[in-house]
Design a protein around this nucleic acid. Structure first.
Lengths: 187, 187
DNA sequence: ATAATAGTGAACAGATTGTTCGTTATTATA
DNA sequence: TATAATAACGAACAATCTGTTCACTATTAT
């Protein structure tokens, strides 16, 4: 609502992500954040109860956004007509990542990437769960459905990590092919 | 060498793992560790330069042990004749986990499990890499080998996390079946 | 027996945290 | 435009934590 709130919130987010590119989450102090954001100490604590709260808020904003967009895309096709329709939700997600919306790659490739990957996977889980509802399963009941959902979201996240750590030498389309090669045989 | 060193080292490890069961890694202070271990402040810093060093040392000891044993098992069969030969390395690993050697489950199920999972996965990667060397790959070159290795170790670790978070209702043998069901089709 | 090694306990400056409070600036709205 | 509500400021605070130092004591290996 209040423009001032949005400004400080954005400034804190910006400072925080900037610091994450330099050092691990654990070593970042509130002091550094407010210095970088040029914001009063009391102001920080008026917005976020703790550093962990800030982390959580940032993750929700980022991953909620990216996964939400993927969800919209699969539900209402044609909405993104201005962009080449991706071959799969996974490809869509990877392209989103490569475009580096809100410097999301910075977070996933920083020293504390594991923390962000967990949030990412949680969001992914919801997405994939939904995809399964609208889909006939061809597989017999060899494995429970929630095992399968976890396997897919887990593999995807681990693949993204592998991709980033390898300096992202593959294109999203290439990665998508790999991923489908290891996932589709079991669907 | 010196018995005193081993004792304090063990006391610190014990105190640390105990605290991890209660609170997240980030919230644990050196102060609490030395209080719980009943060890002088200077002593702690004589052993570990920092809290992160302690974490690393613990992980190396634990995962090096469990994965190393799995590696031995696959190399020299019959060594573990006193125990029912497990159907696969994965089953072997899962059984080891369930036995909760050195309270390894406590670490993997605590609030900071992500940190430990990363170390676990690193160790696993080496193991699986080795397994691939001694094995003919049936798959075509649809996906690169290191992608595949990462996919397998990543999936395994994510499965363990799923297992633990679901309160470990499945037996290691059951889990092993699931895992082979999603992995063997692509080998 | 003795020299080397490890642990003790206290003290330390410096940094970090989370909170409080009076003051100032910005915003919404009447 | 006037005014009341809201947000940020900045300075200060006690409490805690960190990492290091030092003189002293206990244990260990040889």
């Amino acid at each position: 609502m209040d423009r001032r709130q949005q400004k400080t919130r954005a400034a804190i987010f910006r400072a925080f992500t900037g610091l994450l590119a330099e050092k691990s989450y654990g070593r970042i102090t509130v002091q550094e954040i407010i210095d970088a954001a040029d914001v009063g100490r009391a102001t920080f604590y008026a917005h976020f109860g703790t550093k962990d709260d800030l982390l959580k808020a940032l993750c929700e904003e980022l991953f909620g956004h990216i996964v939400g967009s993927a969800m919209d895309c699969t539900h209402t096709h044609g909405l993104y007509s201005d962009r080449k329709a991706p071959a799969s939700v996974f490809c869509h997600l990877l392209q989103h990542l490569q475009e580096n919306d809100h410097n999301i790659l910075g977070l996933l490739s920083c020293e504390s990437s594991e923390i962000f990957l967990r949030y990412f996977k949680d969001s992914l889980n919801e997405l994939i769960q939904e995809l399964f509802v609208n889909r006939d399963r061809k597989t017999g009941a060899a494995v429970p459905q929630d095992f399968l959902v976890n396997h897919i979201s887990g593999s995807f996240v681990e693949m993204v990590l592998w991709w980033i750590r390898g300096r992202m030498k593959q294109t999203p389309e290439e990665l998508d092919r790999y991923f489908r090669a290891v996932i589709e045989p079991i669907l």
